[in-house]
Amino acid sequence: MKKLFSKPESLTDTDHKYCPGCGHGIVHRLVAEVIDELGIREKTIGIAPVGCAVFAYDYWNFDVTEASHGRPPAVATGIKRFLPDRVVFTYQGDGDLAAIGMAETIHAANRGENITVIFINNAIYGMTTGQMAPTSLLGMKTTTSPFGRDPKLAGYPIRVGELLSTLEGTTFLARCAVDSAKHVLDAKKAIKKAFEVQLAGKGYSMVEILSQCPPNWKKSVPESLEYVRKEMMSYFPLGVIKDKTKA
């Protein structure tokens, strides 16, 4: 008998602290599988965010550092510039990447840092229990937008991939989801491509992943999947946003 599907080497055996159905765990595994397949586990350095994925260093079986809230791109820059032959990636939520860390995000992208960014867009602040995020959809009820996100009060959800696509420094940008097996496999392909771009020294790559957060969305798991498909995907369309390697 042969093992067809099992835990990749780049994941530890530690149980995740995530809620049932949370997308973070799926993406952790995808990143680990890609790192295994590319044979880069021993030269990869990951940067965990402040957010629900703060314990990512317990789940990945390679070198991982924390970073303060929003600063992973700056930390990644420091590591990668000093050790350019290592593989460096950040893993960040929407609050981390697109609110408090937006300046670091844009400037790392604009410098064309040869790093990979894995961006978990769950349209909410998961860890702090459900406040509005920069990617919360219009009308979305959160603990700090109790009447629904009103653009007059809180502006509009940010499409990070599209925003970064205007920067000359970005090489590969894609948006994926983990609501179904098909999309999970697509996401894996995009993550692999992003790491390959870095390995080829071609510059900044970012994969945004629409991810379900059932408890803070106050939805069951099936309802959350529906929300990703109907509401999130219509505002945040899936697909490759920019691929300079093809130009």
């Binding site: 420091g78 590591i79 000093f82």
Partner: peptide, 26 residues
């Protein structure tokens, strides 16, 4: 050696954090 004019002092100190993590005198 590595020189970056960062986008802010926040970014600069966190780049120091990263370079230090990687073993540099930063």
């Amino acid at each position: 050696r590595v020189f970056i004019q960062s986008e802010s002092e926040l970014a600069a100190i966190n780049m120091v954090f990263g370079a230090s993590v990687a073993g540099a005198r930063a």
